[in-house]
């Protein structure tokens, strides 16, 4: 089976400082990869390089496109990359405000990607929007409300709906539960797991929260100071950490 994503030797430097370096991995359809590390580990830099938000200084990111097979998204033209970002890829931001149009209604937010790829039937667009709001557990009677009237958890769920409406195959998530109340986090995690399984999504999730990663990710990559210090099955890395830093990280988690 062809990997959905093949990452080879990605590196990003800020002058003499290492953003991230020497990152290589394969991601297969249906797999969820977690990237953990503390502040400054380079995980967000890596995610942005992979998602096309930041140009890496080295390396390739080969995505198995529907039409042309594996293509390097780093050297792809900008129109193609933007098109990928609207259809086959999705990016869930840590702050919902960065991923939503706050001045547009919830229905408009969900419908935008559909309209961007040519949907021209108002009734159909609205119906799809209602369907997705239901899937992310937002009441349908809020379809015409602006996100500014929503709670943080609802905004985050709306962001997920907006991203998934075009059926992407790869979702990037940057601290998807950061800043949310604990009970709200639980609801969101459950939702994400269900969607990943039902839609056969692959996902790359950056987080500092090991509990999130244990619940959501099949595989785990641990980063420190821009380097990947360990990778493997999530439960193996967390239960039998090999690298000294991973051992420290795991033992530092507060038990409730």
């Amino acid at each position: 089976m062809t990997p959905l994503l093949q990452v080879r030797d990605i590196a990003k430097f800020y002058g003499g400082r290492i953003g991230c370096t020497d990152v290589s991995f394969d991601l297969y359809p249906g797999e969820v990869l977690g990237i953990v590390g503390e502040s400054g580990s380079g995980k967000s830099t890596l995610l942005n390089c992979l998602a096309g938000h930041l140009p890496p200084d080295q390396g390739e990111v080969l995505f198995d496109t529907r039409a042309d097979g594996p293509r390097d998204t780093v050297t792809m033209s900008e129109p193609e990359r933007r098109m990928l970002g609207r259809t086959d890829w999705a990016f869930v931001h840590q702050h919902a405000r960065d991923g939503l149009r706050m001045g547009v209604s919830a229905g408009g937010n969900v419908g935008e990607r559909l309209m961007a790829v040519g949907a021209r039937h108002y009734g159909d667009i609205r119906e799809q929007a209602l369907d997705w709001l239901d899937r992310v557990e937002i009441s349908g009677d809020r379809i015409d409300d602006r996100p500014s009237a929503f709670s943080g958890g609802m905004q985050q769920r709306l962001q997920i709906a907006r991203n998934l409406v075009t059926g992407p195959r790869l979702v990037f998530m940057d601290e998807p539960t950061g800043g949310l109340d604990v009970s709200v986090q639980a609801r969101l995690l459950d939702l994400l797991r269900g969607l990943v399984r039902d839609m056969g999504l692959s996902a790359i999730i950056v987080t500092h929260d090991l509990a999130v990663v244990r619940l959501l990710a099949d595989r785990l990559m641990v980063m420190k100071s821009g380097h990947v210090v360990e990778q493997g099955l999530t439960d193996q890395v967390l239960d039998d950490p090999q690298h000294g830093y991973t051992q420290l990280l795991v033992s530092s988690v507060l038990q409730v």
Partner: peptide, 14 residues
């Protein structure tokens, strides 16, 4: 990338 233009019309109808 004109999806946003139709969003405006969508908002009008909504």
């Amino acid at each position: 990338e004109y999806g946003l233009m139709h969003v405006k019309l969508y908002e009008d109808i909504a």
